[in-house]
C-alpha cells in the first residue's frame, strides 16, 4: 500500500479576529488523498475550503494537527505543492512566457531547457501565439490557462486549485475542466480542487469531500465512480447531484442563518 500524497490528521485552525472573537475555521480534519487521485472540496462560502488548501500549500499553517505532503511535513510554501488561485495571480509585469518560465528560472535550470519546456507548455495549453503578450491583454480563461501552465512547469506531483474557474463563464469553465482532466491523466497529478460548484465537483472528482460550515469539518466523502468523460445530463449524474445538493444545502442554510444573525 502506497502512502497518501496528501495527509491531514486532526487538523485544526482557529482565527482570532481583531475584536478578540475566535473563529474555528477547521476542526479535526482527517483527509488522505492518494497519489493520482482527483479530490474536490465542496461546501458553502466560509466553510474553510481555502483555509485547508492554504494550510496544505504552507501559506498559513494549522493551529494544531499534522499535515504531510509528498511524504514530508508541511512547514512552508514550496513548488512541490503548486497552487492555482481564483484570481489567477499572474505577474502582470511579465509576459506569458516569462510567467511560465519564472518557476524554472528560480530552480536555476539552463536557459535552453527553460525555453523548450515553456514552448511545450504553451503549446499544450494552446497559448503559443500569446507567448509575448502581457496578462492584461488576455481574457479570464486565457489567464487561467497561463496560471495552469505556470504551475505545470514546476513539475509538482500535487496541484492545489482554489476555485480556479469561479470567475469564468460556463463554456470557458467546461473547456478548462476538460483541460485539467486531460492534464491530470497525462501527467498523473494528484489534484485537490476547491469549488462550490456541485456539478463541477461531480464532473471532475474521484471523491467529493463535503465540508460543514463553522466549524469546518469533513461532513461526508462521496466517491464518484462514473466513467469519464462524464455526461452531466445522465440519470446517474443527476442522482449524485441531487444527493450532494441536499448535503450542501444543509450547510448553506446554516451559513445563511449565521449571516442573518450577524445582521
Amino acid at each position: 500500500m502506497s502512502a497518501p500524497q496528501i495527509l491531514a490528521e486532526a487538523v485544526n485552525k482557529v482565527f482570532r479576529s481583531p475584536d478578540g472573537q475566535e473563529v474555528v475555521a477547521l476542526r479535526d480534519i482527517e483527509l488522505a488523498v492518494e497519489p493520482g487521485e482527483f479530490v474536490c472540496l465542496l461546501g458553502p462560502s466560509g466553510c474553510g475550503k481555502s483555509t485547508l488548501l492554504n494550510a496544505i500549500a504552507g501559506f498559513s499553517l494549522p493551529t494544531s494537527g499534522r499535515l504531510v505532503a509528498n511524504g514530508r511535513a508541511v512547514v512552508e510554501p514550496g513548488p512541490d505543492r503548486a497552487m492555482v488561485f481564483q484570481e489567477y495571480a499572474l505577474f502582470p509585469w511579465m509576459t506569458v512566457a516569462k510567467n511560465v518560465a519564472f518557476g524554472l528560472e528560480i530552480k536555476g535550470e539552463p536557459k535552453e531547457t527553460i525555453d523548450r519546456k515553456v514552448g511545450d507548455l504553451l503549446q499544450l495549453l494552446s497559448l503559443s501565439e500569446f507567448a509575448n503578450s502581457f496578462p492584461k491583454d488576455l481574457s479570464g480563461g486565457m489567464r487561467q490557462r497561463v496560471a495552469i501552465a505556470r504551475v505545470l512547469a514546476l513539475d509538482s506531483p500535487i496541484l492545489l486549485m482554489d476555485e480556479p474557474f469561479g470567475a469564468l463563464d460556463a463554456l470557458t469553465r467546461r473547456n478548462l475542466q476538460d483541460e485539467v482532466l486531460r492534464i491530470w491523466t497525462e501527467f498523473k497529478k494528484t489534484i485537490l480542487f476547491v469549488t462550490h460548484g456541485i456539478e463541477e465537483s461531480i464532473y471532475l472528482a474521484d471523491r467529493v469531500v463535503v465540508m460543514t460550515y463553522r466549524p469546518g469539518t469533513v461532513k461526508t466523502v462521496v466517491p464518484i465512480t462514473l466513467r469519464r468523460p462524464r455526461d452531466t445530463a445522465s440519470p446517474e449524474f443527476n442522482d449524485i447531484k441531487r444527493h450532494l445538493t441536499d448535503l450542501v444545502m444543509e450547510e448553506q442554510r446554516r451559513h445563511e442563518e449565521d449571516e442573518i444573525r450577524k445582521g
Binding site: 501559506f59 503548486a82 505577474f91
Partner: peptide
Amino acid sequence: IYVRAARNLGAKGSVMFRRVILPAAA
C-alpha cells in the same frame, strides 16, 4: 497575492525582491 504566488513558485530573498516586489512597486 503576488507574494503568495511567488512563494509558491519557490521565490525567496533577493529573487522575490528583484522580480516581484520591485516591479509590483514600480
